[in-house]
Design a protein around this nucleic acid. Structure first.
Length: 312
DNA sequence: GTCCTGTTTCAGTTTACTTCA
DNA sequence: ATTGAAGTAAACTGAAACAGG
């Protein structure tokens, strides 16, 4: 990488800078329907409760441990397998009274509406040779009962399937943020909750940013190395020039060379050469200093001085 | 103009799960 | 086979910004 390449990359580590995300405030969602009977006035409380119950709605993808259990049970009876899945991952075992292959996913909270019955669909995913999805739909008598059943249950963590991840990645390549409509569509398509899609995009943006920051950091390191190398080269060049002047003007030195050359030093911050003994006062003296070159010397890193800018 | 509510995004953190020595 | 550390990713929290009533 050349110096120019390194330094003209348009690189900017504006970590504190917030992107200007295209806030799509045209909210296509219905106003948030509160699961709970109490209407929380506080936004955060609302959000917390929403999140709290998000993980309770079972749309779970099993990891290997549960999957193996299912595989085991699957050899005999699919329904047994589902029962195992319920035991393994769902806190609401026994809550399901019927099975269906319906792909319709209804969530009252996300979609709005004052439904009393909550249709819950559980997606069971087994990553053995081919993925198999079993959708379980159940009706519940009331939300209240639902909440009671799920109180204090630990949050379960799902693993997105390869297909789900791939679809999300594809979508992310198209646009890194989602408007509510896109979120809903994607959630419906993947049998996930919109909140899950939202979280996935948040985390994905964070990962992208982290990677970009790391890449920028590497680039900066390279740029720094290039600058150091350039600086070393310039210092060497300067020494050579000094030596040449010393020999060339030995016979008839001009006025400014009548200083003892050994005492001439260059201030790295103000690009002036001064008498070494007069180093800290040269700024006020027009006779003992002069400009050298056209390059601002403060741009030259001095490896021999930890604080070049403090030289004056 | 100010306040309130609701929504989104982000940074930072927690936690469930996986991998590997 | 087991176990614990490290890594990863999903989920959560709190704050800020913004829009609309």
């Amino acid at each position: 990488m050349s110096f120019d390449e390194a330094c003209h990359t348009g690189l900017g580590l504006s970590l504190g800078c917030r992107d200007s995300p295209d806030h799509d405030h045209t909210n296509l969602q219905a106003p948030p329907h509160h699961h709970h009977h109490h209407h929380h006035r506080n936004t955060y409380k609302n959000k917390q409760i929403q999140l709290k119950y998000d993980h309770l709605l079972p749309s779970l993808t099993l990891g290997p441990s549960a999957a193996s259990k299912i595989e085991e049970a699957e050899s005999t009876d699919l329904h047994q397998a589902v029962a195992v899945q319920e035991q393994a991952s769902s806190p609401c075992s026994g809550a399901f009274s019927s099975f269906s292959n319906s792909s319709s996913f209804k969530r009252d909270r996300e979609l709005g509406g004052e439904e009393i019955e909550v249709e819950v669909e559980v997606e069971v995913e087994v990553e053995v040779e081919e993925e198999r999805v079993v959708n379980i739909t159940s009706s519940r008598a009331s939300e209240e009962l639902y909440e009671q059943d799920h109180e204090d249950s630990p949050r379960k963590k799902l693993r997105l399937s390869k297909e789900q991840s791939a679809t999300l990645e594809d979508s992310f390549r198209e646009h890194t943020t989602l408007n509510p409509k896109q979120k809903q569509d994607l959630a419906r398509k993947l049998n996930l909750r919109p909140r899950q899609v939202e979280v996935w995009f948040q985390n994905r943006r964070a990962r992208t940013k982290l990677k970009q920051t790391e890449a920028d950091c590497e680039l900066l390191k390279k740029c720094c190395e290039t600058l150091k190398e350039e600086n070393r080269r310039l210092h060497k060049e300067l020494q050579e020039v000094k030596l040449m002047k010393q020999t060339a003007t030995a016979a008839a030195p001009p006025f400014y060379m009548q200083f003892p050359t050994a005492t001439l030093t260059m201030c790295p911050s103000c690009e002036k050469i001064c008498n070494g003994g007069d180093h800290h006062n040269h700024h006020g003296s027009s006779t003992s200093s002069f400009l050298i070159g056209s390059k601002p010397a403060h741009l030259i890193f001095n490896p021999f001085s930890t604080h070049p800018s403090t030289a004056c």
